[in-house]
Simulated scan of single mutants.
Amino acid sequence: MTSERIPVTLLTGFLGAGKTTLLNRILTGDHGRRYAVIVNEFGEVGIDIDLVLSSDEELFEMNNGCVCCTVRGDLIRTLYSLLERPEQFDAIIIETTGLADPGPVAQTFFVDATLQDRVALDSITTVVDARHIQDTLKQSAEAEEQIAFADQMVLNKVSLVSPQTLKSVERSLRAINPFAPIYKVDRADVPLDKILGKGSFDLERITELESGFLNPGHGEPGHVHDEHCQSHDHHDHTHDASVTSLVVESDQPMDAERLSDWLNEYLAENGQDILRAKGIIDAAGEDRRLVFQAVHMMVEGDFQRPWGPDEVRKSQLVFIGRNLNRAELQAGVMACAQNHPS
């Protein structure tokens, strides 16, 4: 029996973004860790054909101990087959096709009790092509979704664009997803310890982000240092495409049970439009921070570390999705305040 759950990275990104290069580095690198990589057999080639070969086997073991397998059936069954192997892995990476919505894959880890006991979703990591992403966003809803779902982004091919274009690209990414760190690289050459095993999807991780939860500060990954970086209005992020994000904040202590009921009901009705949601909640009568996050209609939450003696206690909720109604979300959250008439 394993003492800790195996971390799983969901790797996504639009066609040509650089997932192939990143996966090849993981599968062939001399990093001393054993990764199992699950790739789709349809759509783009997930890794080099020389690595996959032409085989009827679902599992391909590499000379560095990593394993690659193609998804020829249900993802849960594929994960079970990996977990049943006598040798264990340090981590599992699931690569989605370039045209895939990562939401349903992420939801797998909410709904299967066995997987919840054995594995933990570590992050949704999105690889972004700096040169083509702005044109892609104008044409593809899937590219927006991949960015919206991201816990962290690998902004690839940055040397192929001008500094001004790079700033514009970062603003576009931040407009869709205000809280995911952005790592700027070429040839997908991001240090693996920067993106793997960081617990970016872990609820406890959110409690460490502090002010960076909404807008990373100077010197932090993801901060956009431009003429807008001193602005205090980070509450609405809009752009020309359909996916937007907004933040709802409240200084009033929340009734945790009422908020949980409202959030579950709201996501049940609007979950297809809410791609991701995260929040840190000041729960009335509780010294610990209530932390939640959601993927579509699936939501989980827990009380995490205590509020610090010098911390300002307030609730912050981030919603990323389509057709977001600020007034409706604001009213829903405020109705959950402790002093709000029930």
Rank of each mutant, 00 (worst) to 15 (best):
S123P: 10
I47G: 08
D74K: 15
D129F: 01
L83N: 03
D255I: 00
Q230K: 08
D255K: 09
D186L: 08
R288W: 05
S342W: 10
V312A: 09
K167W: 10
H132T: 11
H31A: 10
V291H: 08
S123W: 06
V161T: 01
D273Y: 07
T12M: 00
M297K: 06
R313L: 05
H31M: 07
G219D: 13
I274P: 08
H223G: 05
D240P: 00
E44T: 03
H239F: 04
R205G: 10
K194T: 11
T165R: 14
I92Q: 08
V67D: 08
V127D: 07
L79A: 01
P163L: 06
D186R: 11
D101R: 07
A294F: 13
F89Y: 02
L275W: 05
A277M: 04
D193S: 04
H239W: 01
F292P: 06
G13M: 09
A106G: 05
E145H: 07
T96F: 01
K198V: 12
L121C: 14
R205P: 06
Q107V: 12
R288F: 06
H218R: 15
E170R: 15
Y80S: 13
M153I: 04
V161I: 03
A256T: 15
P163S: 05
L22C: 04
C66Y: 03
Q164K: 12
E269M: 09
A335H: 02
R25K: 11
L290F: 04
T20Q: 03
L79G: 03
P163H: 11
N323W: 07
I92N: 12
H218C: 13
A91S: 07
A143F: 09
N63S: 15
R33I: 10
V128W: 09
S211M: 06
F213E: 00
D122S: 14
E286C: 05
E84L: 06
R322T: 07
L290K: 03
L137K: 11
D90W: 11
P163W: 04
R276D: 13
E286V: 08
R33S: 11
F319N: 03
L23S: 03
H237V: 12
L83P: 01
D151G: 11
C336S: 02
V67H: 02
F110D: 14
G332S: 01
A120Y: 05
A143R: 02
H31V: 09
L317T: 00
E44D: 05
V185T: 13
A113N: 10
S168A: 08
D193N: 01
V185R: 00
R288V: 03
H296D: 12
T244G: 12
A141S: 07
H223Q: 13
H234I: 15
G271Q: 04
A120L: 15
G301A: 02
V158K: 02
P341Y: 04
V333D: 04
